[in-house]
């Protein structure tokens, strides 16, 4: 399973980015292969509109099954994520990626 995180850096101990659409990075952890990939999403700053759907589409392309984020996506982004069948967990905005993964494993994150 591929778990995507919205983050402020490309490392396992980077801080989470509480924003979804305008997150700086997306980290994807494949827990079956124990593989770790990152995507630099900072170009999104130049977009005036539609950051949510665009980042959602990126998650789909990255093949994510689960999204772990902070505040949670807005309406347009949610619509894409739902169609893409991605499960969303929120409330990890103030954690490190590592802590967010632990929290997810312990079922202490809220499902969106």
């Amino acid at each position: 399973m591929k778990i995507a995180f919205t983050t402020k850096g490309a490392e396992w101990d980077s801080e989470m980015d509480p924003r979804f659409g305008r997150t700086e990075f997306i980290l994807v952890y494949d827990d079956e292969k124990d593989e770790f990939t990152s995507f630099d999403n900072r170009e999104i700053e130049n977009e005036a509109h539609g950051a949510g759907p665009k980042t959602s589409q990126k998650l789909f392309e990255l093949g994510a099954n689960v999204l772990i984020t902070g505040n949670g996506p807005g309406g347009n982004a949610s619509a894409v994520l739902e169609k893409a069948g991605i499960k969303i967990y929120i409330g990890a905005g103030q954690m490190s990626v590592k802590d967010a993964y632990e929290a997810y494993k312990n079922n202490s994150l809220k499902e969106f």
Binding site: G50, A51, Q57, N76, A79
Partner: peptide, 23 residues
């Protein structure tokens, strides 16, 4: 379509195209 849309109002998701009228 999604490449030509400057506003991300048209999104391709695998075998479907999603349109966001508000964008």
């Amino acid at each position: 379509c999604q490449k030509n849309c400057n506003f991300h109002a048209v999104i391709q998701l695998g075998p479907q195209i999603l349109v966001f009228p508000e964008l």
